[in-house]
């Protein structure tokens, strides 16, 4: 099998870079945009990004790998982010974490085999007076119980 350069990703990346041409230090906004379009930052985007911004591929890779938000492989159709920070732990977060991992049969940062759900930890959503809290796709949910989470998951898939 020959691997051809992914010209569609390259041209899309160049367009995104030129949309951000007037920003100073534009790499994070660009990566956010790439990820919002592809669901992750494809390997084939690294070289065109580096070329367009006149930085090395190592620089781009370094930034992508540094931040928890950027992913180099597709995630599930839905992302469940459970808060693991102290204020949620004080309200029974640990038991809830264990319950969710059991119900979803997923560990942190794993995606279900049908590609439906990715489970991620998050360290604080600013919902600290009404935990345990989670972000389901972009929907915030709080005062979670095992039952409530199971219902939300059923509604989602």
């Amino acid at each position: 099998m020959t691997i051809l350069p992914d010209t569609s990703v390259a041209s899309r990346v160049q367009a995104i870079v030129s949309e951000h041409a007037d920003l100073d230090g534009p790499l994070l906004p660009i990566l956010h945009r790439v990820q919002s379009e592809y669901g992750y930052v494809p390997e084939s985007a690294i070289r065109p990004l580096a070329d367009a911004l006149n930085i090395s591929r190592a620089d781009v890779h370094g930034v992508v790998s540094f931040y928890h938000d950027f992913h180099t492989a597709p995630r599930g159709r839905h992302v469940v982010k459970i808060c693991r920070a102290e204020a949620c732990q004080a309200r029974g977060g640990q038991a809830l974490e264990d319950h969710i991992r059991k119900v979803l049969r997923l560990n942190w940062n794993e995606t279900s085999s049908d590609g439906a759900i990715t489970l991620e930890p998050v360290y604080c959503l600013g919902l600290c007076a009404c935990g345990p809290a989670a972000l389901i796709d972009e929907r915030p949910v709080a005062k979670l119980t095992g039952e409530k989470v199971e219902r939300l998951v059923r509604e989602m898939v």
Partner: peptide, 8 residues
């Protein structure tokens, strides 16, 4: 970048 748990 209000990342501290317990703050909002």
């Amino acid at each position: 970048d209000e990342g501290d748990s317990g703050t909002f």
